[in-house]
Design a protein around this nucleic acid. Structure first.
Lengths: 139, 139
DNA sequence: TCAATAATTAGAATGACTCTAATAAATCTC
DNA sequence: GAGATTTATTAGAGTCATTCTAATTATTGA
């Protein structure tokens, strides 16, 4: 912990992405990256910012999430039509998703192994492989 | 082909699902199931119905897609946040998705094999496994 | 046939997200 | 550092997919 330069870790993320270290981006980066791996929606992050006393508009939250995703700092997870999740864990891994509760959780990359990859349609290459284990409560 | 009872195949799908064979449901069932496996959005299906001269409201298209999904006649495919796809192929299989074009295509179930399933979180069981191979054009 | 039940409808409402065009902040040049 | 340039932020309007509402209409069971 370096209390004299509390934003330096976030600064170091923004710089190589060519993103100006604005007050809003730095604050959102701290919320996102200083508490371990997490999954957030824009609405959640906006709420957290508000609770932390950071004044930031919804538009900026969306802009920032997309810019961070472009820059490889975040990864978008598609599990729900009509709500985008962003994952701070950008390493190779997959997800558990419980529709009933909206809970989204990482599965370590080495716990899921895909075999026998099919040929892709002509003119395309694989960009990414998403595996989602959809869960239900077993009551 | 039995031209004297053109709706009988669709009828036979609705009956066991406990869905009354209304004009709208029968017509949508024909559009969905009489041309082999396909992927549709509500908007697409509504457009097709319109083009085929079937008067059906958007609300009914949504209701019907959801009821058919509940009944196991369709399967919802989540590949895009903000747009729901429905697949008439309900057998075990996975998907190719090309974000740039919106193209969604089946991968036969036996071309993707998942190994080493992880333990699910306490109190949950696996409901379904979705594998999405996200493609990009290789230009 | 007629009541009871269920489905359909138009249009309003919602919710997540994007756009606009005006203001403000960060950076670059001297 | 001052001013010019570039880039970000913002509030609020706009959009798009989807769902809701409450009234009408169709289907079914007696």
């Amino acid at each position: 912990m370096n209390h004299t330069r509390p934003y330096s870790a976030s600064l170091d993320r923004l710089r190589p992405a060519g993103l100006r270290p604005t007050r809003q981006r730095l604050a959102l980066a701290r919320l996102l990256f200083e508490t371990g791996d997490r999954h957030v929606t824009a609405e959640q992050l906006h709420g957290e910012a508000r609770d932390a006393g950071i004044r930031v508009s919804v538009a900026t939250v969306y802009n920032t999430l997309h810019q961070f995703t472009e820059a490889g700092l975040l990864r978008e997870v598609v599990v729900d039509p009509g709500r985008a999740y962003f994952d701070t864990n950008t390493s190779e891994h997959h997800h558990f998703y419980t529709e009933e509760t909206g809970a989204l959780e990482d599965i370590p990359g080495d716990r899921v192994v895909l075999a026998l990859m099919p040929n892709t349609p002509l003119g395309t290459v694989i960009d990414r492989v998403d595996v989602i284990l959809r869960l239900k409560t077993d009551s």
